[in-house]
């Protein structure tokens, strides 16, 4: 059994370096999250049965995308700051009737396909509402 080096028992200048590294990591992460939290642009999150399948930034127009779920196909049009279901071959067409969504918190739902398109991020909901009845 070799002798192990006895540890230093008084703080050294190098310890300060470790502390600085950890602190820098913490501050860096916090700043990153803070910036991300407030400047996150409006994003459309597409989920099937609660499972996220796509995420589209609406900072600028992103064109059309199609999604298949169950036996149905939806075509979604992403413009700058808005999203809508252009067409769907589902029997109810509720998702097409929902029209354009533009604000964080709004969503388009296609029940037969079990698809939810929900907007997140973007400007704070000043003057907006927390929920919509209808």
């Amino acid at each position: 059994m070799p002798m192990r080096p006895s540890p230093k028992l008084r703080p050294t200048a190098w310890d300060a370096l470790v502390v600085l590294c950890v602190a820098a990591l913490a501050i860096g992460l916090a700043v990153f999250q803070w910036r991300g939290g407030t400047q996150e642009s409006l994003t459309a999150v597409v989920s099937v049965d609660g499972e996220e399948i796509d995420r589209v930034s609406l900072e600028r127009a992103a064109g059309k995308r199609t999604y298949q779920a169950g036996a149905y196909t939806l075509t979604v049009e992403y413009a700058a700051g808005s999203a809508r279901v252009l067409s769907s071959d589902c029997p109810t067409q509720d998702c097409v009737h929902t029209g354009i969504i533009t604000r964080s918190g709004q969503s388009i739902v296609c029940l037969p396909a079990r698809i939810i398109i929900r907007l997140e991020g973007g400007a704070a909901k000043d003057g907006g509402v927390d929920a919509v009845l209808g």
Binding site: I100, V129, L133
Partner: peptide, 14 residues
Amino acid sequence: WRVGIQDPAKPDDQ
């Protein structure tokens, strides 16, 4: 909580 009542005349406008 602020809860909006959808305008029934404009169901397409969220």
